[in-house]
Design a binder for these strands. Structure first.
Lengths: 207, 207
DNA sequence: CAATACAAACCGACTAGTCGGTATTAACTT
DNA sequence: AAGTTAATACCGACTAGTCGGTTTGTATTG
């Protein structure tokens, strides 16, 4: 493993994610960030145009990764049920790894100036659209119940997953694997039609 | 209807909820609040010890109301399924009415100094406990599937509901009634046992 | 007169961003 | 390989502006 020297820019990002998560964007000064990593203000503004640009960078790294992972999960499978399960799996995994990022993403997005927030909002919608497409497809193929509006179903799932960043603690009694399993079970039972239930049961918790 | 003259204090709270929701606590100055309602800084600090105290007041009004409504929904019914439905109904209603409050509640809770946030966190847990008790009871009575850990189920439901504040728009194409109906259906299907399904079907969307 | 309810000017602490300068590395020449 | 130049990366004292909160003043009410 080649021990690559981390750039100052990367060290700033890494430190900021942690600090922003803990205390919030507005309560973390640039001075504190650079002091935290033993750098200087000059170094900071050499790498970033502004504090806002740093916040944007954190947002973009995270949401771009989520989109990439979601799309990969989509492409890897070819039925609505398997795709949905893969996406749930992927998403909760990401949320497990990037909890600091996602906290910043959802708590501090309002602090982004418009020039940045426009881009981020577009990408956020893009992520949701991938999930919604899976639901729509599933309704078309009668794998998923058509009597539920797919937009609401999508947002219900998104909410369920996203909210984990508020309460999940890696040091807590529950592992993300357990949570994923339960979420998957609940979602499948909620939306899979009786006729497609056979394919779905393999992804459910045994009872 | 007696036209009661609104106190300055109430006007400050009302204006602040809106402003905080729109721009975030840190981006709204005390000067802007008082200017917005045509008052003065002296008036503000006559009614509030600090800007933080105002934020606390907004938090407390909201969460206390949620607890009260949840408890009432609990007391009004006597089976897990009816209680759960009533609570879902109540909660989404509250979220419909108090969207500005809830936005402030979830986006700005980190801005509360510890003296206040302790109280708020306790109340927030209290609200969750009421819901969790319903789930637990239901598992005891075999109305709800016991193979799903009730803590995860509870947080899944909480997440689904809470997330609505992020995307629901009163001016949008979906009404909160529709959303509630779909949420209720999904939750019931996800957790109600086969043997109790008979009681639950009346609350589901017809398919 | 005394207490309340507000107004308006003011203060001090804090912070994003600047700017002149220095160290470090890369590129080129001889 | 050594010397020279240029560009990049980084430093830290400083500033201009902002904002929560205070103080002093004034009108009203009981």
């Amino acid at each position: 493993m080649p021990m690559v020297k981390k750039t100052l820019k990367q060290r700033i990002v890494d430190a900021s994610v942690v600090l922003f998560q803990e205390d919030g964007y507005h309560n973390v000064t640039v001075d504190r960030i650079v002091e935290y990593i033993g750098a200087s203000k000059g170094g900071f503004y050499h790498n970033f145009k502004s504090k806002d640009e740093l916040l944007y960078e954190i947002h973009d790294v995270f949401i771009s990764y989520v989109i990439k992972q979601s799309q990969e999960a989509y492409d890897k499978y070819d039925t609505p049920i398997t795709r949905l399960c893969a996406m749930l799996q992927t998403l909760t995994q990401v949320f497990d790894m990037y909890q600091a990022h996602i906290t910043v993403f959802y708590e501090e997005s309002r602090s982004l100036p418009e020039e940045y927030s426009e881009i981020i909002h577009k990408k956020r919608d893009q992520y949701r659209d991938i999930l919604q497409k899976v639901i729509e497809d599933g309704q078309q193929t009668k794998d998923f119940r058509t009597e539920l509006p797919c937009t609401i179903v999508t947002m219900a799932i998104v909410g369920m997953i996203n909210w984990t960043y508020k309460w999940f603690k890696q040091s807590g009694p529950l592992t993300m694997e357990e949570i994923t399993e339960v979420f998957t079970d609940m979602v499948l039972r909620a939306i899979v039609t009786e006729q497609a239930m056979e394919e779905a049961v393999q992804f459910m918790v045994k009872g």
